[in-house]
């Protein structure tokens, strides 16, 4: 049975989420991937303020396809998270509470998730048309020049994902495949 969570996510919600839990998220999330992360990271390195408040937010690693007329958003599945590993700990230190993507994270990210009491969700890679059904609207926030890589705010309803790494550092990518290894 999936756990329903209304965003913004609370520390209590995060504490109760365990690796492997199926979750349905409702509320608003941010989007951002490679190029947007690079820009945010460089601003932070230079001591400049960010164009978007990430405190308490969840960021979805996604670069959507364009929306066909009549659709709120285009297909929008997760992209590989490891490419954001270089930037993620810095954002978590600044108050980002969660990330949605796909695939494994490095040691530094896992340690930062535990230290900052955050959560990493996995969405199903390649299920973009299905996932888009749970995204009800989008708002352009910044970096529009990056096209698909711009930072947007999505309003989601029962957005399906799985807790991949919980706030205790339990990691499904470590624990699950070995159960099926022959």
């Amino acid at each position: 049975m999936a756990k329903r969570i209304t965003l913004p996510i609370t520390d209590e919600d995060i504490k109760n989420l365990k690796a492997g839990d199926s979750v349905l998220l409702s509320g608003t999330i941010l989007t951002g991937r490679d190029a947007a992360h690079k820009r945010l990271y460089e601003l932070i390195q230079n001591g400049d303020s960010l164009p978007v408040d990430i405190k308490g937010e969840i960021i979805y690693y996604v670069g959507p396809a364009p929306a066909k007329p009549g659709y709120a958003v285009g297909p929008a599945g997760p992209t590989s998270s490891y490419r954001m590993d270089k930037y993620a700990p810095t954002l978590l230190e600044l108050g980002l509470k969660g990330m949605i993507g796909k695939g494994a994270r490095n040691k530094e990210v896992v340690e930062s998730i535990v230290k900052n009491k955050c959560v990493y969700f996995a969405a199903i890679g390649g299920a973009a048309a299905l996932i888009a059904k749970s995204i009800k609207s989008e708002e352009m926030l910044c970096y529009e020049d990056l096209g698909t890589e711009a930072i947007r705010r999505y309003t989601v309803e029962d957005f399906p994902c799985i807790v991949a790494i919980d706030s205790d550092g339990n990691n499904v990518y470590e624990t699950e495949p070995i159960k099926y290894r022959k």
Partner: peptide, 23 residues
Amino acid sequence: VLSQIIENDKIAANEEIPLCQDT
């Protein structure tokens, strides 16, 4: 996961939208 992928691919075909955002 497999059932969701199958459903996804059916939605994409029926609605003529990309099955993955990374086209």
